[in-house]
């Protein structure tokens, strides 16, 4: 496999409905036993991901946003099989990853790669950059020569210098390190790349370069991204569609402009209204939707709608009946009293 191989075409809007999804997550649940010295026998497990379903199409970027504790990291770890889901399925190109043993999963890893948040922690400090990028290539059983050529190709691709190959991670800046992380992820030509907060540890002036690189690479190579982040303006910039998570569930999933332009779920609306905008005139005029209270504990989620304890629209029915995800044609959302479209 080389970079110059045939590219997947980027999906056009009308192709989306026809093509089968690349990644398909169905009813994914992940419980953590509340364990440890102080755990009571029979106490509730913590349900970090509480039945999540979504698709990622070939060549698209799905943004996944939510506040800390909403389960987005647990979800990505379950997809990567760094954690074993309690139930539900994750299928990639038609293969159900959740049912695979370690050996079979290892074979699938070349299709599914990840770029982590912290470029300081995710690179081995005592390995040279060249070796770090070459490590996943062992999955492909390449010759030494082919592997070396591939590493050089990758370094050019992420716009690092070839002299960086001989260096160690501590000799590189944060942005350069993140480029190494991206090169390592792309080395095996994955179909799907999970980006777990890939720019949030970087300075503003460096973030833009990494976002541009990620988008350029996708255009050239045609892989899909699941872009997990808490920064909404970054997510808006890179995503085709966006999913909003709250307390282990998806509250709303919609095409980018739909979600940012006309959010249907009150939580999405509140989240958008909280984002500070870099324009003092806008900031002075704006009316924020201020949420009361805190995210409840996933060990004891509220009855009915999970968001109702902080929602200004909540009525009786919200505490008794959990709203199902439903579609209005443009957005899919789980709310009894959605915002006007």
């Amino acid at each position: 496999m080389t970079m110059d191989g045939p590219n997947h075409a980027s999906p056009s809007a009308d192709a989306k409905s026809i093509a089968p999804p690349l990644l398909s997550v169905r009813e994914l649940i992940k419980d953590f036993a509340s364990s440890g010295v102080f755990a009571l026998a029979g106490s509730n497990p913590i349900r970090a991901v509480a039945g999540v379903s979504f698709d990622v199409l070939s060549g698209e970027t799905l943004g996944l946003v939510g506040e800390s504790g909403c389960g987005k990291s647990t979800l990505t770890r379950c997809i990567l099989r760094l954690l074993t889901p309690t139930s539900g399925s994750v299928s990639l190109g038609g293969v159900d990853l959740a049912g695979l043993d370690a050996e079979a999963m290892r074979n699938q890893r070349k299709h599914l790669q990840v770029v982590f948040q912290d470029p300081y922690a995710s690179l081995h400090p005592r390995m040279r950059i060249g070796d770090i990028i070459a490590e996943p290539l062992r999955l492909l059983n390449l010759s030494r020569r082919a592997s070396d050529d591939r590493v050089k190709e990758l370094v050019d691709l992420v716009k690092l210098n070839r002299e960086h190959l001989e260096r160690f991670p501590h000799e590189l800046s944060g942005g350069q390190r993140q480029r190494v992380g991206i090169a390592r992820a792309l080395s095996v030509n994955p179909k799907m790349v999970l980006l777990d907060e890939p720019v949030s540890a970087l300075d503003v002036s460096i973030q833009a370069g990494i976002l541009n690189l990620l988008m350029d690479l996708q255009e050239r190579l045609g892989h899909s991204y699941l872009f997990v982040a808490h920064n909404l303006s970054t997510v808006r910039h890179i995503s085709n569609r966006v999913a909003v998570m709250y307390l282990g569930k998806i509250m709303e999933i919609a095409p980018r402009d739909q979600l940012f332009g006309a959010p249907r779920h009150p939580y999405t609306a509140a989240l958008l209204s909280a984002v500070p905008v870099a324009d003092p005139k806008v900031e002075r005029r704006r009316q924020r939707i201020v949420l009361s209270g805190e995210i409840p504990s996933p060990a004891a989620p509220p009855s009915g709608c999970r968001f109702r304890t902080r929602c200004w629209k909540a009525k009786e029915v919200c505490s008794t009946t959990e709203p199902e995800l439903r579609s209005d044609g443009a957005s899919t959302f789980a709310c009894h009293f959605p915002q006007a479209s």
């Binding site: 506040e67 989240l271 909280a274 984002v275 924020r288």
Partner: peptide
Amino acid sequence: DVTVQAEVLD
């Protein structure tokens, strides 16, 4: 988080 940030800044 952003929603909490908005409250604390206010």
